[in-house]
């Protein structure tokens, strides 16, 4: 088995101390392989967002470690962590977090601007990714003037513009009606298939989770279940269940 692109090794995360201490994660281990799509499923307060933040190197675990391609992330300097988040990860949030009064193109190229890439190159790459998501004609529009589905596509374009190997999506369809939500899902999964991008989706939507290669159920800070989706070919041979226990 190859080295997982991201791995959690028995991570604990607690907030506060003494009587107000709250344990968000109580020993979670998970391996995520390159090109895989993983759904982290749980109710609000289950610790699923905390797990995503730790995997995305936005936060440090209280104990345990997060490994990035086999290397312990706690040993990395702040600059390398920032660079990794900028170049290796893409983020799609439930809320769009688009900068108002700024053009779609400028919003999409924000990660490139942060990386310090020059204006002409930024424009070229931004337009290429907008083309890919059928938003090229909206490049000059103000980001706030778009519909919900268009905004989420802009957000995906922004997550994609740096050619990341991992995309973190926190409730990517939570704010969308089911029809546009379906379109956004299709885009995300086609990216996984076509470009081999690893998808880590945090959701409480069972239908969305079911489309992922793997579902990790989390409850009260612990992984309660981990299910692998059965490839379509073998599904026929197992008549009773569509999933097998991991």
């Amino acid at each position: 088995m190859s080295i997982p692109v991201l791995a959690a090794r028995d991570i604990h995360k607690s907030y506060g101390r003494g009587a107000t201490r709250f344990d968000a994660l109580k020993g979670v281990s998970v391996d995520i392989q390159q090109g895989e799509s993983v759904a982290i499923v749980g109710k609000s307060g289950s610790g699923k967002s905390t797990l995503m933040h730790l995997l995305a190197l936005l936060d440090n675990p209280t104990t345990g470690s997060v490994e990035l391609s086999g290397r312990d992330a706690s040993g990395l300097s702040g600059r390398v962590v920032n660079q990794t988040r900028n170049e290796t990860f893409g983020f799609v949030f439930q809320q769009f977090f688009l900068t108002p009064n700024t053009s779609v193109l400028d919003n999409v190229t924000l990660p490139l601007q942060i990386a310090g890439i020059g204006g002409a190159e930024r424009k070229r790459r931004g337009m290429a990714v907008l083309e890919q998501l059928d938003l090229a004609d909206k490049a000059r529009n103000k980001a706030t003037d778009l519909s919900g589905g268009q905004k989420q596509r802009v957000v995906i374009a922004r997550a994609l513009v740096n050619n990341p190997s991992v995309i973190f999506a926190d409730e990517p369809t939570g704010n969308l009606d089911s029809a546009t939500g379906k379109v956004v899902e299709d885009i995300l999964f086609s990216l996984q298939e076509e470009k081999g991008i690893t998808l880590i989706i945090v959701t409480h939507d069972e239908d969305l989770a079911a489309r992922c290669d793997r579902r990790v159920y989390i409850r009260d800070g612990l992984i309660t279940d981990s299910l692998h989706a059965v490839p379509a070919a073998t599904a026929a041979t197992i008549a009773t269940a569509q999933e097998v226990r991991a």
Binding site: R85, N86, Q95, F97, L110, P111, I114
Partner: peptide, 15 residues
């Protein structure tokens, strides 16, 4: 939100 997003995307505190 914007500051948080930029930090998540790897913009350092100094910048």
């Amino acid at each position: 939100r914007e500051i948080g997003l930029m930090k998540a995307m790897g913009l350092g505190g100094g910048k």
